[in-house]
Nucleic acid binder design. Structure first.
Lengths: 202, 202, 202, 202
DNA sequence: GATGAATGAGTTTTCATTCAT
DNA sequence: TATGAATGAAAACTCATTCAT
């Protein structure tokens, strides 16, 4: 497949505009939800007239789709590396919450979200779970040896649910919710469980 | 405090209308969020003209407040009793999801939600956590004895996060998320952890 | 079926508003066509805000439907009586052209016109043809006797086409088109034909 | 006047684009009227970007003007020859209705149509009337002899009105309107009238 | 206790048109 | 000879809210 390598100045401007729109929409939708975000607010925040927004996107739904896609891409790119300490992962939830908020919002808001976007979201979550699994494997190794891999798979769903829950809880009452502490507790619990499982099998 | 026990025909009608409005608003807001729910859609679903809605409530916010309040009340009333098996609790998440959806949605939607409603939500969550704590206490007892109470308090936050997370996950991909299984796993993990903690202290 | 006989002052106002909207839309659509008539122009001409227009009608299409219905009703009510002289009929085309213009416009404009409206139009035309038939019968009587009725039926379609054509022609170049003269000519031609038919049969 | 006979490749492309635009606009405007046809719909149908349309035409009005001009030209070129049977003329109304629809639509739509286009339309109609006159002359000849020419002139306006009317009627209810039959009837009526006139004069 | 009608600001979207390239 | 991008005005329609009855 051929790709235009060199964009004219005008075309480059177009790409830049698209980026601006997605950026503005991303922030706004994560804050107010899909229904709560008006085109005119996106226009104001991005600095582009609403007419231009409709040149780049067929309708509001299409903006959401692009926001999700772009957000997922960025999310994967900046995911802390596998061997990062758990705390790092935990705090990344607090650092880049925009995509996650949006993700939860549109997952709950139903109704106006098309299946393509939901699929992107599912893929993002699935990647997140993989990441968690690798991490869990590595810290179960000392206590579970070769079983680590198998157990980590089972536990990763629980870990993902906890990541989800921690994030939501953090939004509802931030001062009561200590995300890193939750992570540490979960890790200890899973390690204890693994130890028990292994010893009972032998 | 005195309460009128007998309502006039007129007053009874009024109560009934109010109920209809809250019911309709509850369902709609849980599905579309606050911003995504219009007065006219509430009017259509409840069968009452929009003028009547404004006779009962000062504005849209007030409807939300009433919906949250009413939802919380109902939530507490139908919470499975403390000594119910964990699975029962788990399945109650799947049975009456409306209030939880609404709760998460408006918690994430921020912006348009007033503090009073957020407080009601926090109180509801706090009650939920208490419930979890009691339950955890009871199943830690065999392994932790007198420590059960203290540990359960620590673990209840984790359990609540997992409840939140399980619910959200269930909405994003229902077929991959087995809520009762998550609960069982969590219970086992916490028990293992408690056992370990207790034995290491002795 | 019961009918509210007495309207409250407020309801009467509503009826009046509806009337205003239809009146304004009628004039505008007859002049500019359906697509060329904006809601805001109807709002301006009727003096009612666009929000009110949408209280009375579901959408633009529904306004058109009402305009056609109302126009047809009025058309029937003011049709010159059967025994009026032909010239009177002719001049009525020039006097109340609004409905006819609209009728032709939307018939040609297709696309945005729903079948219900088209049916109203067809009914109106069919009534017009009946009127023409009666008239033709009466002036064929002297030359065709008992055959008048039968012949008039055959000729009425031609007469209706000519009414249509005369109206359109009058709009395209008014000064070249003398509608009454066209009518007179047609009448003479039909009478001549009838005479010929009758004499050849005997 | 000189004409460039050989076009450069570029120029030929330009001519082709212009043709595409007029073709698309012609079809769309005949179906939806002038106001109902958007530049973007012309762009979509013609396959050319809207920018290109504005390279070829100054504005929307200019497209209409070109469409009318081109349509008239084509109309004259394909008019059935004078000595064609009346049925042929009649059926040509059914075969190439696009130009006629457009013509009636914009004549009735008024308002947005400039005088230049209206003049082209009047010229086209005038040509059509001439054609009808010649034809009428030829079939009045047997009954009116030297008077045929004079009478045909008088009758041609009536005939044109009937052509207009037949076309419109055919659009409103196609199944009830038998255009060739209308033509035959008109022809018979005019011949009868002519016969009568001639005989009464002698 | 209730509601039909209204209202004006706001919504999403389309429009005709321009212009740098 | 074209065209991708932009633009602001206007389109159709919905909104939360008010109010006379």
């Amino acid at each position: 497949m051929f790709m235009k390598l060199k964009l004219t100045r005008r075309e480059a401007l177009g790409v830049e505009s698209r980026r601006k729109i997605i950026g503005a929409a991303s922030a706004l939708m994560a804050e107010r939800g899909f229904a709560g975000t008006s085109i005119s607010s996106i226009s104001k925040k991005s600095g582009l007239p609403s007419g231009s927004i409709y040149w780049h996107f067929a309708n509001k739904q299409a903006i959401l789709a692009a926001v999700v896609e772009e957000g997922a891409k960025h999310w994967f790119e900046t995911l802390p590396s596998v061997d990062a300490p758990a705390d790092k992962i935990a705090s990344s939830l607090e650092d880049h919450p925009e995509f996650l908020r949006l993700l939860f919002l549109i997952a709950l808001e139903r109704r106006e979200v098309d299946d393509a976007s939901l699929d992107v979201i599912r893929r993002a979550r699935s990647q997140g779970r993989e990441r968690l699994r690798t991490e869990i494997t590595s810290y179960l190794q000392p206590v579970a040896g070769s079983n680590a891999q198998y157990l980590a798979k089972e536990y990763s769903t629980l870990a993902l649910a906890m990541v989800d829950g921690a994030f939501v809880a953090h939004h509802i009452d931030p001062q009561t919710t200590d995300i890193p502490e939750l992570f540490r507790l979960l890790r200890r619990a899973l390690r204890a469980l693994a130890r028990e499982v292994v010893s009972s099998e032998s």
